[in-house]
Design a protein around this nucleic acid. Structure first.
Length: 272
DNA sequence: CACGTCACCTGCGTGC
DNA sequence: TGCACGCAGGTGACGT
């Protein structure tokens, strides 16, 4: 479910509730959720760690602890929320972190719920071991029109799979890639080194605008997974095949690119 | 290096 | 109603 704006939304909502708390204990309900170390070691290491900061890198939630980092990737169906300590265990809860109480507030727990079990959690002293191969953050100053143009030129790849490649650019997923390409009027199958400087600039602008709008609307919520975001009501192409393009009225088409459902306006997004 | 395919999982909508 | 099938916001390991 989560791409950059969804993870950013989660990071922002969890931060004030987590920073300053101590992790008293943990329950690993599905052991493969813990990517590293072993579930046993994880339980042992995380106990007593204090939460220092909560941030996001690409689609990872990064929780800085006393002397370790807790990294969480929600993959397709993961979600994180805080409940009171006596809340009942839900069907797809995979990991529970018991939190110290703060002032008069009741004791709480952080729950990692993940229907499809693709999500993973890492506990490591060196976050670069997990995050080291990621490309730039699209909302950072590192990501410039110039960088994008030059990086597109030095590869020969189809635009959509390239934008989904987290080592190229970190944070876009299927929704925001389709929305960005439509906004930039670029075809998902266009070759990266065929993109002009002007088109690269349009793509840069589109990526930033689409991600910022996603964050402003608290992400997108679709299917049975609901997190309260609104961006799903503003998709221009994603999941809108058969409906009119908001720009020109042409019927949106769905195709498959690199095994991923891909939505385009065949009038706005033409291959040169 | 770039691309295709499969694997990892569960649940939902569709059509027969 | 039951059931098979296709599909889903992601990524990694393969093989060509």
């Amino acid at each position: 479910m989560p791409e950059l704006p969804e993870v950013e939304t989660i990071a922002r909502s969890l931060r004030p509730q987590l920073v300053g708390r101590t992790i008293l204990d943990s329950d690993v309900c599905w052991s493969r959720t813990i990517a590293t170390p072993s579930a046993r070691k994880f339980k042992q290491l995380i106990k007593g760690q204090k939460i220092v900061t909560v941030s996001r890198r690409a689609k990872f939630l990064s929780v800085q602890l006393s002397n370790l980092y807790l990294l969480i990737h929600l993959r397709m169906s993961g979600d994180l929320y805080i409940k009171e300590e006596d809340a009942l265990l839900e069907k797809h809860d995979r990991l529970i972190l018991w939190l110290s109480s703060q002032g008069k507030r009741k004791q709480h727990k952080l729950i990692f719920n993940d229907t499809r079990k693709f999500g993973r959690v890492w506990l490591t002293a060196d976050p670069d071991e997990v995050l080291g191969n990621l490309g730039p953050e699209p909302l950072s100053d590192e990501f410039t029109p110039r960088w994008l143009y030059e990086s597109l030129q030095t590869r020969h790849r189809q635009l959509k799979p390239l934008l989904l490649d987290q080592s190229f650019l970190a944070g876009l997923g299927n929704i925001y890639t389709d929305e960005s390409l439509h906004r930039a009027r670029l075809h998902p199958l266009a070759e990266s080194d065929s993109v002009s400087e002007k088109q690269a600039e349009a793509l840069w602008e589109a990526i930033r605008a689409v991600l910022n709008e996603g964050i402003r609307r608290n992400g997108a919520s679709i299917d049975w997974v609901y997190r309260g975001g609104e961006f799903q009501n503003y998709f221009r192409v994603y999941d809108r095949d058969g409906e009119p393009c908001p720009v020109c009225g042409t019927t949106i088409q769905k195709l498959v690119v690199g095994q991923r459902g891909t939505h385009i306006c065949p009038n706005c997004q033409v291959m040169e």
